[in-house]
């Protein structure tokens, strides 16, 4: 009985100290932000039902999207290589093949109408001061603006892969990969994936000249990006450990929550895509998590059996000591 009392005292003081230096101290150091579940409540809901065929005409025609964006699934490559594009616009405009699957439809509509507003970078791009966002607003092709935008969104959704076809890697590349590198290669489902740079996967080269030429392109791209963003966006290899899931999600949902005035835009991913991006960050930064859970179970069983034998041994030895 006395020993249990002593154990209780030790446990209480240990847990008290733990509570104070971990949950309590961190609540004092970091602002807690609740997720809105990627609802983007500040953006207006889509009221019109879009027509993909009309949307296609707008995207290819009056919308002039293809002037800057490639649409690989439609056989349309990007008009410029990534480095030239970044030197022209600051960042390489995304290929639109997956946009309808990765981004929230409400966000896409708002983006087409007013990019700086949807991206939450109006503090950086103020049209009244002549600071134009590199993506121009779509003011309509003569008809009902809301209907036209809904049509364009419907078109993007019609060419995009289905939710189950969109891999975590695709979600990451479309939403994050033109600004953020991940320099850790990783293996998933037996398939090896090379490191990711802002201009794509890092290929293996036979000749050093080719490797250096690629490296130069990456550095040129990063220079343009740094000029555009103010600083080079960080490599995300270990972000799942350094920031954790909750921070990443709430930050991506609204970067201004944590860093008022940051140049990082709200990227407008859907809730499902956010999950996939997290999964991708886990694949590269915490690739052994499944093994850890598996082995953890077995080790716990083994140790509990060990403890039972240890207790039995003690009882046996101490029988004649009492």
């Amino acid at each position: 009985m006395k020993e249990l009392f002593i154990l209780a005292v030790v446990t209480v003081f240990t847990l008290l100290t733990y509570y104070l230096v971990e949950p309590f101290a961190h609540s004092q150091m970091h602002k807690h932000v609740e997720s809105e579940g990627f609802a983007y409540k500040d953006l207006p809901a889509l009221t019109k039902k879009g027509d993909a065929a009309r949307g296609k005409d707008l995207v290819m025609g009056a919308g002039a999207c293809a002037g800057c964006h490639g649409i690989e699934v439609e056989g349309m490559p990007a008009p410029m290589d990534p480095v030239t594009a970044a030197q022209s616009y600051g960042v390489n405009p995304p290929d639109l093949s997956n946009a309808g699957a990765v981004f929230d439809p409400k966000f896409l509509a708002a983006l087409i109408k007013n990019p700086a507003h949807a991206l939450m970078v109006e503090h950086k791009f103020d049209a009244n001061k002549g600071q134009m966002h590199p993506m121009t607003s779509f003011y309509g092709a003569g008809g009902d603006l809301d209907q036209e935008v809904a049509d364009m969104v419907a078109y993007l959704q019609s060419i995009a892969p289905k939710a189950e076809e969109l891999t975590p890697k695709m979600a990451f590349e479309t939403a994050c990969g033109r600004c953020h590198a991940i320099h850790y290669p990783y293996v998933k489902d037996g398939e090896a994936h090379p490191a990711w740079t802002q201009i794509g996967e890092k290929p293996t080269f036979k000749k050093k000249q080719d490797a250096l030429a690629f490296e130069t392109k990456v550095l040129d791209y990063q220079d343009a990006l740094t000029k555009y963003m103010g600083t080079l966006p960080p490599d995300l290899s270990m972000y799942i450990r350094s920031r954790g899931e909750h921070y990443i999600k709430t930050f991506v949902e609204n970067p201004q929550n944590y860093l008022k005035g940051t140049a990082m835009p709200r990227v407008g991913v859907s809730a499902e895509s956010a999950e996939k991006i997290i999964e991708h960050l886990e694949d590269v930064g915490d690739s052994k998590r499944h093994m850890r859970e598996e082995i953890g179970k077995n080790v716990m069983i083994y140790i509990i059996i060990f403890a039972i034998f240890a207790i039995l041994w003690k009882k046996e030895v101490w029988k004649e000591l009492h």
């Binding site: 140790i303 509990i304 060990f306 403890a307 034998f309 240890a310 207790i311 041994w313 101490w318």
Partner: peptide
């Protein structure tokens, strides 16, 4: 034996 009993519980 008493040490190992405590060690066993500690290792859990």
């Amino acid at each position: 034996s008493k040490d190992m009993m405590v060690v066993g519980i500690y290792l859990i």
